[in-house]
Computed example of a mutant assay.
Amino acid sequence: MLVIIAAAAENNALGKDNDLVWHLPDDFKRFKQLTSGHYIIMGRKTFESFPKPLPNRTHVIITRQKNYEVPEGCKVVNNLEEAIAICPNNETIYVIGGGEIYKQSMDLADKIELTRVHTEVEADTFFPQIINSDWSIINEEYHPSDEKHKFAFTYFTYIRATKEEI
């Protein structure tokens, strides 16, 4: 199963200058809980935004750079199709960004785990528009803002709509 996982503002903003534009500890915990033990696919810039590889996950980095150096245990490929192909069959694989990789994976994904951050921010990277006729929301969980979370947010789980639903 190919799952897109992201946190995006109401205006689909993901980040600016290769960094997140908010700090949501509960969303980080959820991301870790969902992706731990799995393959995670990302673009080079997303990978470079981490101080080091995320623990207990196999990183698959997409880049056009030749001879791109990565730490042991990480895999490098040239495109999304190669990234998916090197992941084990019958496993849950997570696409974790950035904007262009999300865009390329929208037609291939089976599920979207989206944290909708209830604000609009300035950004240079955006999540693709979710076409409602292609997806069904199967779970929704609202979290108000609090002392640790400047913005309220909602977890949405989407699955690809079946032909019968359309």
Rank of each mutant, 00 (worst) to 15 (best):
M1G: 13
L2R: 12
K16W: 08
N18E: 11
L20K: 11
V21E: 00
H23F: 15
D27S: 08
F28Q: 13
R30D: 01
R30V: 05
F31R: 11
G37P: 05
Y39L: 04
G43S: 02
T46W: 03
E48L: 13
P53L: 10
L54K: 08
P55F: 03
T58S: 12
H59P: 04
H59Q: 09
R64M: 02
R64I: 01
R64F: 01
K66Y: 08
V70M: 04
P71H: 08
P71Y: 00
C74W: 08
V77M: 03
N79V: 06
L80H: 10
L80T: 13
N89Y: 06
E91L: 05
E91N: 13
G98H: 10
I101F: 01
I101H: 02
Q104Y: 11
S105W: 05
L108P: 00
A109M: 00
A109K: 00
K111M: 12
K111W: 01
K111A: 02
K111L: 02
T115I: 05
T115N: 07
V117Q: 04
T119G: 08
E120A: 12
E122N: 14
D134S: 13
D134W: 04
W135K: 12
W135E: 07
I137K: 10
E140T: 14
K148D: 14
H149W: 09
K150W: 03
R160A: 03
T162D: 14
K163S: 14
E164I: 09
I166L: 15
